[in-house]
Design a binder for these strands. Structure first.
Length: 551
RNA sequence: UGGGGCGUCGCCAAGCGGUAAGGCACCGGAUUUUGAUUCCGGCAUUCGCAGGUUCGAUCCCUGCCGCCCCAGCCA
């Protein structure tokens, strides 16, 4: 079930570095910005970074890149820690924050000013943009580019002291306004932001830009391999430049392609909008592609890890079908989930040759392939409910279920034959009269006739009604980002609230537990809305249904 | 049109000069008191295209085509 790590280009690069003697150990890091909850795309990065550290006997740090106080919150820090831990990874003592390095970063900025490698610019944001040039036209130098070291030092000091309003000045690296790489056209290093930071409160009113912070943070921590996504490939020369000017340890940056999953959006901005505008019930809504949403939906951590392993890692733009994730979930749940029976759309069945008032306690295995998981008792009586779509009045030959005159096996019980179809005034089928072959409990018919179909059922008098939420993909379009407005392609049927008639054992479950409703799907006891003795079930994923595909 | 990447089966993805791994999907067939699971078998003479180097190229060279990213005082 768990995947063997297959070779990939990152492992190859690491191996080469190790073999060449350039590196002795491996230190990676997962560096989220605490401005939202983690999603399945982050899981890919987490599994990659922690997985690498594990298999090379190194370690992986968890570091929060909290350089923008305007967007970051403590709530997100806690949620991210919970999610990484839940996925099964441990950063040990190595929990860090960019904000812990603010003093060092400030000193380094001063050092660059002193070396004539950075300057305070006083253009407006608009002017800076205009002077940056375009993709094909070089930029032009700022009129403030040649300020003296003394003046720069003074201005930067006063920026720090809070003498200026936001946007009045900005610290820039002095590199090359004509560089074909836009990132090298005197990028911003420090901006003035009179904002309360979730960890440093109001101690600072200037904050380093991600580009001036990230590489140095890795350097400080001794990170050997800085694994990040493709869009930072263009930034690598900048990070290398800072590290070289500062004469500090240089991590090796390696970029990989981020995950794209069909029928979902992955941008934090959009996920945040779904939450704040209440298109979903929160970050942990079971329809969300967030780790917390998947957890609540019932996806096992192992399934997510296996998924990340099986999709591999490369540099080509890739698009993974949602079904690959779902298949990973089934793979794990099939082995771990106990079996139960529940009927979603009930149709009454009366066993006409079964005595009124009689109740039999049948034994049913909790898992067909794992007898060690024991059995449970199932009450059987004259009146039952079966699934409405397990009956057809005029079934095709390939329909192995119930129809007039047809026989079917009741799962864990008897074989029954449909003798009569009862209708109401409108012609709707309301009930089936069936007769049971009472000599088929735990065995096949003595006369050797074959009964192919098996359907699930519950005893009418003993069944308990439980709330069930049927989830479906959040979006109707394979790539919601391609839509004019991604909110327009939200799937209106992504959540269907209903009730199921369940075997009595289903009242006896624990929060977060996942069970298989035989022939229907996997269902997880909702961790938020369930109470003792009153579980609410989330459909984690359906079972594979080749019959549905045949139709 | 400047720069940086990427192009191997429907979807991912190994391969790194010696003659195309694997997974998913799909198609057969077996077992099965879940049309589930499991199990067997099938599934790229071909690696974006065109040239070139070589005894030999998916791997090296040249040119072309296609796709992605970059002009935040976001990360």
């Amino acid at each position: 079930m768990s995947q063997e790590p297959t070779s990939n280009f990152i492992r190859t690069m690491i191996d080469e570095g190790l073999a060449g003697g350039h590196r002795q150990k491996l230190i990676t890091r997962f560096p989220p910005e605490p401005n939202g909850y983690l999603h399945i795309g982050h899981a890919k990065s987490i599994c990659l970074n922690f997985g690498l550290a594990e298999s090379y006997g190194g370690r992986c740090h968890l570091r929060f890149d909290d350089t923008n106080p305007a967007k970051e919150e403590q709530e997100y820090v806690e949620a991210i820690k919970t999610d990484v831990r839940w996925l099964g990874f441990d950063w040990g003592e190595h929990l860090y924050f960019a904000s812990d390095y603010f003093d060092q970063l400030y000193r380094w900025a001063v050092k660059l000013i002193q070396a004539g490698k950075a300057y305070v610019d006083s253009q407006s944001a608009d002017e800076m943009r205009a002077n940056r040039g375009s993709l094909t036209a070089p930029g032009v130098d700022s009129p403030h580019r040649e300020r003296s070291v003394e003046e720069n030092l003074d201005l930067f000091e006063r920026m720090k002291k809070g003498e200026f309003p936001d946007g009045k000045h900005i610290l820039r690296a002095k590199i090359d306004m004509k560089s074909p790489n836009m990132n090298l056209r005197d990028p911003a290093m420090y901006r003035i932001l009179h904002a309360e930071h979730h960890r440093t409160a109001d101690r600072w009113c200037i904050y380093p830009m991600y580009d001036f912070a990230h590489g140095q943070e890795d350097s400080i921590e001794g990170v050997t391999h800085s694994i990040c996504t493709l869009e930072f490939e263009d930034h690598r020369p900048l990070y290398d430049w800072f590290v070289e000017q500062l004469e500090i340890h240089a991590p090796q940056q390696i970029e990989f392609a981020r995950l794209n999953l069909s029928y979902t959006v992955m941008s934090k901005r959009k996920l945040l909008q779904l939450v704040t505008e209440q298109h979903v019930e929160g970050w942990d809504d079971p329809r969300m592609p967030t780790i917390s949403g998947m957890r609540r939906r019932g996806y096992p951590a192992a399934a997510i890890r296996n998924f990340c392993e099986k999709i591999g890692v490369g540099k080509s733009y890739s698009w993974i079908d949602l079904s690959v994730l779902e298949e990973s979930v089934r793979e794990v749940l099939n082995q771990t989930a106990q079996r139960r029976m529940a009927v979603l759309e009930p149709l009454k069945v009366t066993i006409t040759n079964y005595p009124t008032g009689q109740v039999e306690e049948l034994q049913a295995p909790n898992h067909p392939q794992q007898p060690e998981l024991g059995t449970r008792t199932l009450p059987f009586s004259r009146e039952l409910y079966i699934e409405r779509n397990d009956f057809m009045e005029d079934p095709p030959k390939k329909f192995f279920r119930l129809g007039p005159g047809r026989e079917v096996r009741l799962r864990n019980a008897y074989i029954i034959r449909c003798d009569d179809v009862i209708r109401d005034d409108s012609g709707q089928v309301t009930e089936l009269h069936c007769s049971a072959d009472l000599d088929t409990l735990g065995k096949n018919p003595a006369d050797g006739r074959k009964v192919k179909g098996i359907i699930h059922w519950v005893s009418a008098d003993h069944a308990t009604s439980v709330p069930v939420r049927l989830y479906d993909r959040l979006f109707n379009q394979e790539n919601p980002d391609k839509a004019e407005d991604y909110l327009q392609v939200l799937n209106p049927d992504s959540l269907q609230m209903t009730e199921a008639l369940a075997e009595p054992n289903l009242l006896n479950v624990q929060s977060g537990e996942t069970l298989q409703f035989e022939r229907v799907g996997y269902f997880c006891v909702d961790s938020k809305d369930s109470t003792a003795g009153a579980p609410v079930f989330n459909r984690t994923v359906t079972l594979r249904d080749t019959w549905a595909k045949m139709k």
